[in-house]
Simulated assay, not measured.
Amino acid sequence: MESPLFPTQVFSDDFESVYEPSEDTFVLMDAIQQDLPLIQQIKPLVCVEVGCGSGAVITSLAKATDFNGKALSTTRKCGSVNGVEGCVQLVRTDLTQAIESRLSHSIDLLLFNPPYVPTLPQEVGVCDISGSWAGGVDGRQVIDRFLPTVPSLLSDNGLLYMIVVKENKISEICDQMKAINFQMTVVLERKAGAEHLMALRFNRCPVI
């Protein structure tokens, strides 16, 4: 399966260690396609995907970060196979820690398909493949670490796209972001087996 906007050939010889593109990947890609006119309006120069995984999403965009070294290798190969290797810069880091000062208030398009599956807390952040989906209590442990960093990362007109499931308590996420002057929009919803996936968009609240 592939998004018509991103006819991307996915390359990996190690899907035992790297998250293979799945329905949540395609929901994110389809949300970007649906919002393309809005994205084009802001004329993004700096695009960052947190947790690049296979590289399917970021291959047609700009920058990628991942804590999983094998995911970075897979993304690099994916870019090479699709002829955009030089357009993707890879950073090995925990979330955005290594780039926060350098890219302060300069990211125009921020993408995040986090570990969102509710699990035991001790399953979060492990080095095997389960670390790509284990989200801890309510599937929110990684999400809740990431969201407070968004205001210092995004440019004034920057957009954050993030994948969640209903179990993540979406209304709480909305309130959390509203408290730091961001508004939330549900761009796309899709059922995939037992999961009710949503692609959320966040942008700064307009000045009244």
Rank of each mutant, 00 (worst) to 15 (best):
V150D: 03
D175Y: 02
M177C: 02
L160V: 07
S171T: 01
P151C: 08
R145E: 12
L147T: 07
I163D: 03
I163N: 00
M177G: 00
D156F: 10
C174K: 06
D156A: 15
N157E: 15
L159W: 07
I143R: 01
M162S: 06
S171Q: 04
L147E: 12
I170Y: 02
L159K: 08
L160A: 09
S155M: 15
I170R: 07
L159Q: 11
L147Y: 11
R145D: 14
V150I: 14
Y161G: 05
N168R: 04
L159P: 04
S155N: 15
C174G: 00
Y161F: 14
S152Q: 15
V165Q: 12
L154S: 10
N157W: 12
E172L: 02
L160Y: 00
M162E: 02
M162C: 06
M177A: 04
I173V: 03
V150S: 06
V164T: 06
T149K: 15
E167S: 10
F146G: 09
P148I: 11
S155F: 14
Q176M: 01
K166R: 13
L159C: 08
L159A: 12
K169D: 04
D175H: 03
T149C: 12
P151V: 07
L153G: 05
V164M: 04
D156C: 13
M162N: 08
M162P: 03
D144R: 00
P148H: 15
I163F: 07
L153H: 09
V164S: 06
I173Q: 00
D175T: 06
Q176W: 01
V165I: 11
V165W: 00
V150H: 12
I170N: 02
L153I: 02
Y161Q: 11
D175F: 03
D144T: 00
P148G: 14
T149E: 10
F146E: 07
D175W: 01
I170S: 04
S152K: 15
M162D: 08
M162R: 11
I163W: 03
L147V: 10
D144A: 03
L159R: 10
F146H: 07
I173Y: 04
P151T: 09
Q176L: 00
C174P: 00
L160K: 01
I143V: 12
D175A: 05
Y161A: 13
F146N: 08
P148L: 15
V150C: 14
V164N: 00
F146A: 12
V150Q: 14
E167A: 08
S152Y: 15
N168E: 06
S155D: 08
I170A: 05
L160E: 07
L153A: 08
K169C: 02
I143S: 03
F146W: 07
V164L: 10
R145W: 09
